[in-house]
């Protein structure tokens, strides 16, 4: 066991954690909006819109995240037309490609979580709102959304942890996130166990924090019935 290597690699790995956290937070925020959008589309009565939203979540949940990143990073650059538009500024950066892929992926999972949360809202709440003459827009923003958020907290907490692990795939498109730096140190020192303990420890610490924050939020805002 090379304790010295563990100590010397710790600051490097901690530095890389910042990129991991950046990737995670940006894609979670964007993904939440995408998820909310598609969850609303899923509840639409129009069959075509409904099918479209279902197809989106089916494709993104049925294929590995790695394929999605590769299609966006390696694949989209192949379309000549895209290279002439302003989108190319975004798509040639691995950082933005990773964020697009992560956001679309977590968006698909979030839409499923929110959809099931919306569907479990008791119809009585909506009927009560309607009979009190509250406009449907306000019923949606003030009644449906808050209840749905409360109900989806535990499942969404899992999704955050899955996404934290998902950001490790950014290292496959040359980004130096926590896993990327860990791999670099392993391949230069050939000491996989030591690096795994330090990098894995940092990941576990983050999972632990996320888990407890969600638990706290559940307790504070949890749904009492």
């Amino acid at each position: 066991m090379d304790i010295e290597l563990m100590i010397s690699s710790f600051p490097k790995l901690l530095n890389a954690t910042l990129i991991t956290l950046k990737l995670l937070s940006v894609s979670l925020i964007v993904g939440l909006f995408i998820g909310l959008g598609f969850a609303i589309l899923r509840m639409n009565n129009n069959k075509l819109i409904n099918k479209f939203a279902y197809g989106y979540s089916y494709i993104f949940r049925g294929t590995p995240l790695l394929v999605q990143i590769f299609i966006i990073y390696f694949g989209l650059g192949q379309i000549e037309y895209l290279r002439t538009t302003f989108l190319w500024v975004v798509l040639k950066e691995p950082y933005w490609c990773a964020i697009i892929a992560f956001s679309l992926n977590t968006g698909a999972y979030t839409s499923e979580i929110l959809r099931s949360a919306f569907q479990t809202i008791k119809p009585g709440y909506l009927e009560a709102g309607r009979s009190l003459g509250i406009p449907s827009k306000i019923i949606f923003t003030k009644i449906q959304i808050p209840i749905a958020i409360k109900q989806s907290l535990p499942a969404y907490g899992n999704e955050i942890i899955l996404m934290l692990k998902g950001t490790s795939l950014a290292s496959t498109v040359t980004l130096m996130d926590l896993t990327g730096v860990a791999k670099y140190i392993i391949s230069t020192t050939f000491k996989p166990v030591e690096v795994f303990i330090v990098a894995g420890g940092i990941y576990l610490f983050m999972t632990f924090i996320i888990h407890n924050v969600i638990k706290y939020l559940e307790k504070k805002y949890g749904f009492q019935t």
Partner: peptide
């Protein structure tokens, strides 16, 4: 806890290199 809290890729690197 450890396996579910650590990215799959990191576990694969551990076994691949180790």
């Amino acid at each position: 806890t450890v396996i579910r809290g650590v990215p799959e890729l990191l576990v694969i690197y551990l076994f691949f290199f180790g």
